[in-house]
Amino acid sequence: MTGSWPLIIALWGAGLGAAMQYAKIAVIFDLLDGIYPGAGPVLGWLVSVLGFIGILLGAVAAMLVSKVRYRRSLLGALWLGAAVSLGQALLPPLPVMLALRLVEGVSHLALVVAAPTLIAQIATDNQRGLALTLWGTFFGVAFALMVWLGRPIAIGAGIPVLFALHAAYMAGFALYLSPRLRRLPDTGEVMEISLRTILAIHVTIYRSAYISAPAVGWLFYTFCFVSILTVLPPFLDPSHRGLVIGSMPLVSIAVSMTFGVVMLRIMAAVRVVMIGFALSALCMIWLFVVPAGVLACLTLAGALGLIQGASFAAVPELNATAETRSQANGAMAQMGNLGNTLGTPVMAMSLAGWGYASLPVIAGFAFLLGLVMHILLTVLRRNA
């Protein structure tokens, strides 16, 4: 199974299902008021509540799916995600829908920890950079699919149909992957879970400039990615709004899979991430000067593409063992969920108070912080 591209691509496809758990709500956000009239700001939690489990248990998830327990975690997460989406297709009352989104967060967390760890394990040394760059596109691809296909389905056939199709997607990948992952050993040490263990794992991860580095940068990336795609559309010209929002993830993917892959062959993954943050910050200056400029939006998407793939490629580059890689992926899940959870509410509140100008200012500051943190962690690694 080592070096199996069909299996690697299938695991990436499972990751698309995890990203769709965010995207399926984000792309129909403006339609939800018709289902839950009068809910107002509470609707924003339908996007962000998915990340609560990841914030609390990201590092613990890494412990649970570490070593050789990836198969059970991945398949269980796919089946759970399918069941939850079926429940959402019934359009239950808002409190129940919020509870389902919270449960869906368990599925999301397990997928985003187990899948990239499995990909890193299966890929050969020569394949690993490209394979993890491909994995890094999963959010962008999922959002593009939901913009181009999911939203039209929701508008034409109804939101329940969109949720039911997502359930079928998750179940389909569970059925496909189950026999193919069976060849992996699925036994190993069962680690005790206690408050002391949880705290010790967090200390281990975040004291290490190697394990924590990809996650620290990922926090600032995710803070901006979902929030920008969610709040930017009203400021774009309606005549090309759908085209721009649908194209941004595709441009991000194209840059990640071309320039990003080439750059990873000639420089360290962290250096590629840092270049991506610097270019993204410059793009926010551009968007401040030219509000909602189409070319600036697409250029920003390209810069974000460098951060996407290289962040995941940095995990095995900085961490040599399966255990530390799993911890790094767990930290990325934790920080990614924190960024996704905070990003949209913070952006929405700032836009309500200060208007469009707050978007490039806040996002630009976040990109600069991502760059600065990577510089500081690089210095710490050199000194160590």
Rank of each mutant, 00 (worst) to 15 (best):
R241P: 10
M263H: 03
I201N: 08
P93Q: 09
T258I: 10
T204W: 00
E323F: 11
H166C: 08
A168C: 15
T378D: 10
L145F: 13
V261N: 10
T321L: 11
L338N: 01
L162Y: 04
E317R: 09
L75Y: 02
G87D: 09
A352D: 13
R183S: 14
Y210T: 11
R381A: 06
D237N: 15
R101A: 09
R325S: 10
V84T: 03
S350I: 03
R196A: 15
I266C: 11
L134N: 04
G3C: 10
L98N: 05
A357W: 07
G58N: 05
S85F: 11
N337K: 00
D237M: 08
M1R: 11
W5I: 14
S48A: 05
V315H: 10
L57Y: 05
N340D: 02
Q327G: 11
I35V: 14
G370N: 00
P41C: 03
L306F: 07
W79M: 15
F312K: 04
T187F: 09
A313D: 07
F235Q: 04
Y36T: 12
L282E: 01
P185Y: 06
P238Q: 07
Q88T: 10
I285Y: 10
V68D: 14
Y70N: 05
L57E: 01
V47L: 15
S326P: 07
N329K: 00
L43N: 14
L74A: 14
A77C: 12
L359R: 02
Q308I: 00
I211A: 07
Q308P: 01
T299P: 01
F259C: 15
H374Q: 14
A83E: 04
V141H: 00
I375P: 00
